[in-house]
Amino acid sequence: MLPGPKPIVGQYFSQEIYQIHLDLPRVDLLLFKNCAVRNRGIAVNRSALISGPLPTMYQSWTEAPVAHLKIEHSDDFPVLLEPPPQRDLIIFDTWGTSSYYHLLLDHIEPLWITREYLRQSLGIFDGLVDYYRISNNGYQSELETTLDIFQHFLGKRFVEDADGAYRNVVYGYFFSYRPYLGPNLPELFFLNYQRWLSEFRLQFCPSQIRVKTQLHCL
């Protein structure tokens, strides 16, 4: 007897996509709920509408931003999500990571802020989080210690080929901005960025951790 059609249980493509836009400094995020990532693509409901360009993480000084993530409609990308996924994923790209400065300030710190924002503001990304570098933007040079440094701040190394089902997927980050954007752009100051920079220092700077402990003791 031939087996019958495999029953589809649960949703197998993201029916919930949220676009998050903030200013000062600018933030563009896409948040996908319950979806599958494979081959640099993400499955969404065919009816899901994404207006405007996809957010990108890094805009170099001279080149136009590139969206690396492919949006695949569910018919082309069927994946069964049963049982429901429990892991979360942040997708990002890098540039200039042969420099510790760029690695820390352009990528690691913004990713940490993104995760903390989602935890604090939306109550998500509070469990296991995976990190997927979807592109190095053609910048092949890399610090030998990149993964160690990344793990120190984010608790886990990033991968360069994600494949699986996730509860929450974020593409884009806080902030695709850094203290100094580039030699051809004006220097700007954002109180919102300063607040998150302080949060980062409270977490990782020994002197700030002492201050934080003392405040809690009062």
Partner: peptide, 28 residues
């Protein structure tokens, strides 16, 4: 190591010298 870089930076009152990526450690 990154932990040593943070500790070293946290225990100084200043950084002076040739400009470069090491100055990212003023963050700590």
């Amino acid at each position: 190591t990154i932990a040593e870089q943070i500790k070293t930076s946290a225990n100084t009152r200043g950084m002076f010298g040739c400009e470069g990526a090491a100055f990212a450690n003023i963050l700590f």
